[in-house]
Amino acid sequence: MIDQPAPYLLKPASVTRVMAQVLLALVPGIAAYVWWFGPAILVQLAIASATALAAEAAMLGLRGKPVGPALADLSALVTAWLLALTLPPIVPWWLTVVAVLFAIVVAKHLYGGLGQNPFNPAMVGFAVVIVSYPALVSQWPGISGPDAFAAQLDAILGHRAGLDALTGATPLDHLKTALKLAEGNGSVAAVLADAGIYGPLGGRGWEWVGLGYLAGGLFLVARRIMTWHVPAAYLGAMAVLAGALWLFDGASFASPLFHLFSGGTLLGAFFIATDPVSGSTTPRGKLLFAAGAATLAYLIRVFGGYPDGVAFGVLLMNLCVPLIDMYTQPPIFGAKAMAELGRKEGR
C-alpha cells in the first residue's frame, strides 16, 4: 500500500520547467544584446551563473537542505541572468560576483530560500552595487559589435585603462544630461536628432534588445507561465505617464515610445516585475503592483539621480505587496450571493 493522497493525477508541470522557459524567453533579448553591444554580456552571464550556482549550493548546504533538487529548479540561474542583464556588461568581474552573492545569499537564502524572499533578489543585488559603486555601474558600452570583445574582456578582468574608448552614455542618460546641459533651451527632438545613438523607437541597439525581451515575454504569456496583468499594467502605466508629460511639454519630455524601448522597461515589464515570489499574486494586485513599479521607474529615471529606475521601482513596490494582496483578494465563488444575504440581514 502506498501512502499518497489524492489527487493521483498531476499535470506535468514543475518549477524547473517554469524557470527553463523563462531562461529560454530571455534568449532573443540576449542575442540582440550580443549583436549590438558585443559578447561581453555572455562572459557576464557565465560569471553570474557560476557564482549563483555556487552560492546556492553553499547556502543550501549550510541550511541543511538537499542541494540537488533545489539546484535543479534553475531559480538561481534566472536570478543570475536577470542581474547580469541589468548590470553594464563591462563592469569588473568581481562586481558581478558581489551583486550575485548578495542576491542569492542575503536577498534569497537569509529570508528562507526560494519562495520566501520578500524582495526581488536580482534587484536587491543590483541596488546594492549601484549604491556602492555608482561610477562602475554607470559605465555602459557604446554600440560596438562583436569585434570589441578583446577590449571588453580586458575591462571585465579589471584593466580599466582603455575604458573610455568603450563606453558611451546610455540613451536615457544621454538625454537627461543633454537636457540638463541645455538649461531649458534644448528640446528632446533636437537631442534625439543630434546624436547617433538613437533609433526610430528608442536608443539605437537598445530598441532591438527591447524587442527581443518583448518577444520572449509574449512567449511566456502565451505559454501561460505568467498572466498578462503585470506586463500590460507596467507598460500601460509607463506609456500613460510618459504620454501625459510628453503631451504637456513635448520639448522637455521624451515620447512614450522612447521610454518603452529605452533602459530596462521591457526587461522589467516581462521578467522582473513578473517575479511571482516577491510580487503581488491577485489579479487586481498585479495590476496595481506593476502600475506602481512602472510609475516609480519613470519618476526615478526622469527626475531622479539614477540613469534608470526599474530596480528601485520594483523594490519599493515589493514593500507594498502584503498590503496590496490583502486589499485585492478576488471575490470567491458565491460571493455575490453572500453579499446579497448580508444586505438582506442588514436590513
Partner: peptide, 18 residues
Amino acid sequence: MPCIRCGECARACPHQLQ
C-alpha cells in the same frame, strides 16, 4: 518544492480561492 506563489492554483480553483 517550495511554493513560488506562481498563482497557478488560484487560476485553477473553481471556487476562486487562493
